[in-house]
């Protein structure tokens, strides 16, 4: 867990709790998922091509470099999805989604 973003304003919002890679994290109503990830996790996803973690880039839904997973397998673009109480967010695909032959 690593903090990257720094909160500077708007700190009087209703607190919420969600899960990131199985760890409960504090956030505030109005945060987008990428903000939560950059305050608590330090990255959003791992590049499929072996060049390491990615932490989003454009914050406006254009670069597509912050797609995360929910526990049930849905895909969310972290920079344009509001965080909500009880969300179960994963930086990599949760186990068991892909029926991979042995």
């Amino acid at each position: 867990m690593q903090a990257r973003f720094v909160r500077l304003a708007e700190q009087e919002r209703r607190p919420i709790v969600l899960s990131v890679d199985g760890v409960a994290v504090d956030a505030m109503e109005g945060d987008v998922l990428l903000t939560v990830l950059m305050l608590h996790r330090g990255f959003a996803r791992i590049s499929e091509f072996g060049d390491g973690p990615r932490a989003g880039f454009c914050m406006m839904g254009a670069c597509q470099d912050c797609w995360v997973w929910t526990g049930s397998g849905d895909r969310l673009r972290a920079c344009s999805t509001a965080a909500a109480e009880g969300m179960d967010i994963h930086t990599s695909a949760p186990e068991g989604l892909w029926p991979i032959p042995a």
Binding site: F5, R7, T35, G56, C58, M59, M60
Partner: peptide, 15 residues
């Protein structure tokens, strides 16, 4: 743009 949006719409700095 991301740096600015983070500040305006999230009240955060990128670092």
């Amino acid at each position: 743009g991301a740096a600015q949006i983070t500040l305006k719409a999230q009240g955060c700095a990128i670092g």
